[in-house]
Simulated assay, not measured.
Amino acid sequence: MTEPSVFDQFRPLLFTIAYEILGSAADAEDVLQDSYLRWRDIDEDEVEHPRAYLVQIVTRQALNQLRSARRRREDYVGNWLPEPIRTEHDASHDVLLAESVSMAMLLVLETLGPTERAVFVLSEVFGHSLVEIAEMIGKSDATVRQIAHRAREHVQARRKRFQPDADTNRAVIGRFLLAARTGEVQNLMDVLAPDVVQISDGGGRVIVAGRPVTGAAPVAKFIIGLAQNSMADMAVEFGSFNALPALLFRSGADGHLDTVLMIEIDGDLITGLYAVRNPEKLQSADVPRPLERPQDIL
């Protein structure tokens, strides 16, 4: 068997960094493609630390991509959610990695400026020193230290508790599905946190709720309406997306993926429902995405 190239060896790590900076799998793949072309044009034997070199290339490319993406998102129709990625056991074994790609965390990161986001991700998730990050993004150590402090405080004030529990999650989701299908509003409310939030992303291409739905009663009525109308004839399957339990809704004989509903759970209550329906964001949603952090910082 042919040994993987240096770039392929670090690809899961590089994708994870790019995705967490960008919140888009498609944009992350574009960054990796551009980074590979740059890597291909250099003499690998002259690079003393390939991983550090590639992380620097990907970080800079991702920052450039994020700045242009931010301008595009200003014109986005309706609620914007990160592009969902199918995650397997590699993410759930590492709680910090799992939290970092969760919908709640990615939405918090979206409130940071591009440089703040990159610094936070590289330092807090991937364990790079501020000196290393300063070199990667071309800023002074003192400036990066200030950025890191500001970003950390910003995220800490907004992050949700993240405690994955597969057994409990499956039981809660089972109760959620049963109540939605039978139309029992109170039973559904019993598995919803009082301040639960439901966010739908259709990108202006499919019909979704134009604004977030907040509160157990409004969310319960909204979900039951969907279950009994637009999603009544769809096939449902379990999955794991962004290290969260998810329900996949498929329509038609070909099993066309219509919706990925990611479910955020705290204890035995659902605190967040993130429904992605924008067809552009679902094009490669069925492809498992290996995620990785450097093993020497686990």
Rank of each mutant, 00 (worst) to 15 (best):
S230V: 13
A217L: 14
D201C: 11
A275I: 00
P288W: 05
Y53F: 14
N64K: 13
V125S: 06
L106C: 00
E48D: 13
D34A: 14
T214W: 08
L261C: 12
P164A: 10
I17Y: 00
D254G: 10
Q198N: 11
E135M: 11
V131S: 13
Q9M: 11
W80M: 07
E74V: 14
A209I: 01
E184P: 00
V236R: 15
I147F: 08
I199E: 10
V197S: 13
H256G: 06
R161E: 13
S24N: 06
L96F: 05
S92D: 12
D258K: 15
Q163I: 04
L13K: 04
Q9S: 11
E88H: 09
E48V: 13
D75C: 01
R152Y: 06
L63K: 04
V101M: 10
E132C: 05
D201F: 05
A193F: 01
A118Y: 00
G272R: 05
V197H: 09
A220Q: 07
V191I: 02
L291K: 05
I17D: 07
E184W: 09
Q156M: 13
L226V: 03
L192I: 02
M262V: 05
E264H: 06
T87G: 09
D233Y: 05
L226Q: 13
I42V: 13
R289E: 10
D268Y: 05
S251Y: 08
L130C: 06
T16S: 15
L257W: 00
F176I: 04
G239Y: 03
S284Q: 15
A52I: 02
A134N: 14
V196H: 07
L96Y: 04
A52T: 07
D268G: 06
L13V: 02
L63M: 14
V185M: 11
I270V: 15
R250D: 03
D167F: 05
V219D: 09
D201G: 09
